[in-house]
Amino acid sequence: MLVFLVRRLLQAVMVMLAVAFIAFLMFRYLGDPVNNIVSQDATQEQREEVRKRLRLDDPLILQYGRFVVNAAQGDFGVSYRNSRPVSALLAERFPATAELVLVAAILSLALGIPLGIYTALKPRGVLSQGLQILSLVGISLPTFVTGILLILVFSVWLGWLPSFGRGDVIDIGWWWTGFLTATGLKALILPSFMLCLFQLTLIMRLVRAEMLEVLRADYIKFARARGLRNRTIHFRHALKNTLIPVVTIFGLQLGGLIAFAIITETVFQWPGMGALFIQAVNFTDVPVMAAYLVMVSLLFVIINTSVDLLYNVIDPRLRTDQTRATGRGA
C-alpha cells in the first residue's frame, strides 16, 4: 500500500510539473509580458531595464524553476487587470465554485444511484421507462439550454427562485458560505441542478447497466439459493459490485463538474472561479489563466489519486501487497 501510495504521489508530482510548464509557457507565447507592464511609448532602454529588473532575461529553465517554486507557495503573481494578487482573487472566488460543485456532486450521487438501482430492479415498470426516457433528454441537451429553460420556468414564469447571483453570503473567517442563509440556499438550487443534470443521468444509466449485469452473475444466483433476503442481495452483494465503474466515472466527472461550472457560472452570473476565468480570457489576463489552469489540474490529480485509492478499498483483488493464496488444489 505504501509503495503504491508513493508511486502514485510521484506520478502526481510529474503531472503537476508538466502542467505548470504549460501554464508557464502561456506567459511567453501570449505576447511579451514586458509590453503589458511598460507604457506604450517606453523606449527600448526602459523596456530592457524592466526586463532586467524582473529577471526576464534569465535562462528559460531558471524562470520556470522560479515559477514552480512560487506557485507551490500559492504565489501566481499579480493580475494584469485588477492589479491584485492572483492568489487573493482565487481565494475569493474559490468558495463559490466549491460549494456549487459540491452540491452538484452530492445531488448527482444521491439521486443517480437510487434511481439507477430502481430502474434496474424494475426494468419494465412505467416509472422506470419514463426515467429512462427523461435521462436521455438529460444526457443529450446541452447544459446551457437546460439552464436557460430552468431560469425561464422557475425565475421568469413562476418567480420562485433567483435567476442569478449567490444570494447573501456569510464570512466564516476564511470562507464565504452561501449555505447559512435562506437566499444563499435558494440561489444554489437552479445552478447546482443545471450543473448536476448531466452527471446525474450519466450515473443513473451507469448504475442501471452495471446492476443489470451484476444481477445476472452466478454469485447473485447462489446468494438467492442461500436464501438471503432480497434487500441484502440487491443492496449489499449487487450494489458493491457495481461501484468500481461508478467510482471511476464519478471521479472523472467530478473534474468535469469543475470544468462545466464555467458554463453554469456564466449562465447564472455565479461569482466563482469559472466566471473569473472567462473574464481573464477576455482580457488576456495571463497570470489568472495560468493559476486557474494549475488549480484545476491540481484538483483533477487529487481526485484521480483518491479514485485509485478507493478502488483498493472496494475491491480486495486489487490490494497488491496482501499475501496471496497459498492453497493449491483442494
Partner: peptide, 10 residues
C-alpha cells in the same frame, strides 16, 4: 462454477 459462485468483494 465455484469460481463465480462466491461474491468476490466479501
Amino acid at each position: 462454477d465455484p469460481l463465480t459462485s462466491l461474491n468476490p468483494l466479501f
